[in-house]
Amino acid sequence: MIRRAVAQDAERLTTLIRTSGAYRGKYASIVSDYRVTPDYIARHRVFLALDVAGRLLGFYALVREPPELDLAFVADEAQGEGVGRLLMEHMLEQAREVGLTHVRVVSHPPAEEFYRHLGAERVGTVAPSPPEITWERPELRFTVT
């Protein structure tokens, strides 16, 4: 099930980000102090995927201006189960509903292939922004049709 996030979801979204296996080692600095706040949820289109027991499987945040997929995470134990694809399909539906023509993605380097597999095009590279981000990141774009 996918539903819109509410303020009470903020803490568990933060926990999912901070415990993500994709951000261990050299990538840990980008999420170590990151926090999803109730205000963030109120300002953006944040949706989460839950299993039938209500367990958080993943979430995304779509920013409308400028159009960007700001956050997208799938729980480590749900990787490879189609949750990410389901969330990205939902995100593109939401983008279409609000009239967006494209959605920018500044990707975590290991996730680039995932986004490209779902139809995103690489359009550039985002330079590091030390001290938190000391590596280049792929910039991609989904065309909303």
Rank of each mutant, 00 (worst) to 15 (best):
H102Y: 05
V83H: 10
V126H: 08
A42E: 14
E68N: 02
T125G: 02
A49G: 04
E97A: 15
R96C: 04
A28K: 07
T14I: 04
V106P: 07
T14K: 00
Q79D: 13
A28G: 01
L118M: 05
F59Q: 14
S29C: 10
F47A: 05
M91V: 14
R18T: 08
R55P: 14
G99V: 01
Y40L: 10
G119H: 07
T19P: 02
A10D: 13
H90A: 05
A28Y: 13
R64E: 15
Y23K: 11
A5F: 08
V144C: 02
F59E: 15
H117I: 04
I133W: 03
G99C: 00
L62Y: 12
P109N: 07
R137E: 05
P138L: 00
V126D: 11
R64Q: 15
M88E: 10
E97V: 03
R12H: 03
V98H: 03
L92T: 14
T15V: 15
L48S: 06
V6S: 06
H117R: 11
G21V: 02
L140A: 02
G99Q: 00
L140T: 04
G84H: 06
R12M: 03
E112W: 03
E97F: 08
L100V: 13
T143Y: 14
L57S: 05
L71R: 11
V103H: 07
H117L: 06
E93L: 06
E89K: 09
L56M: 07
L57D: 14
R12Y: 04
A7L: 03
H108W: 01
T37G: 01
R96E: 13
V36M: 05
T37Y: 05
R141N: 09
V106S: 09
G58S: 01
A42V: 12
R3N: 04
P109A: 02
E68W: 04
V31P: 15
H44W: 06
A7E: 09
V31R: 10
A10P: 06
P67W: 07
P128C: 03
G54P: 14
V105E: 04
R141Y: 08
A61T: 12
V74H: 08
G58Y: 06
E113A: 11
L87F: 04
T14Y: 02
L71W: 10
E121Y: 06
I2S: 00
I133G: 09
Y27T: 01
Q8R: 10
R55V: 11
R3L: 01
H102C: 05
V103W: 12
P130I: 03
S129T: 15
L140S: 09
T14V: 01
E132S: 04
T125D: 06
G54C: 07
Q8A: 09
R96Y: 06
R137W: 06
E65A: 08
D9Q: 06
D9I: 04
Y115H: 00
A42Q: 11
S129R: 11
T145A: 07
T125R: 08
F142H: 06
G124S: 09
A49Y: 10
V103D: 11
T101S: 14
D76T: 07
V105Q: 07
L100A: 12
E121M: 03
P138K: 01
V36S: 00
E93I: 00
E68R: 04
L71M: 15
E11A: 00
R3W: 05
H90F: 04
V83E: 09
L48I: 10
F114P: 15
F142P: 11
S129H: 08
A120W: 13
